[in-house]
Amino acid sequence: NIFRILADLSHLASIVILLETIRKARQIDGISLKTQILYVLVFCTRYLDLLTFRWTSLYNTLMKFFFIGTSVYVVKLMQDCKLTNPVSYKDMMFRDTFQIKYLLGPCALLALVFNYKFTVLELCWSFSIWLESVAILPQLFMLSRSGKASTLTTHYIFALGLYRALYIPNWIWRYYSENRLEKLSIFTGLLQTALYSDFFYIYYRKVMKGRGFELP
């Protein structure tokens, strides 16, 4: 359906914006390495089904490879910055101080409690879905600490947030058209979108009106 397509396109756009930002500007100011590492973990644990060869569609498979590949590539580009632009790297590390153990632990526990089946594949899938819902927190934390961000960085975060937000009408659509109700995805999707709500508000008030992102 249209919402699902738009959501996936928005997700793709966010990654393209991020890659272009890092490659063109050759600096990583305002981008959280921790959030990017969490995304590598999210995609690697979510798409383990690639190994079972039980593919749903060519579209899904290509997207899965794309998300795993680009998330690893982003981390590599950011690590490269240590040599090519050490000032920018140091500055990023200085601000990227969110303790991700407070996300990983609870997500692992939640995956053990809430899952569709107690198998390795399903536990990893559930872990990834919980972790994705909070993976942006180090990035948002960094943003709130520095109080401002480059316009491109805010476009990246917006596109990334929009992706999960668009999955919500997609789930409503699927509930009516296929009678399908994936409770875990829906709950974590709502949680994820809620975490972005504050950011969305500021993005709407400032960036969309051409004023640049700055926190009050």
């Binding site: 569609s57 998300f67 994936e182």
Partner: peptide, 10 residues
């Protein structure tokens, strides 16, 4: 045969 959980979303 055991039922598989289908995840067709990304």
């Amino acid at each position: 045969k055991e039922e598989e959980v289908e995840h067709d979303e990304l």
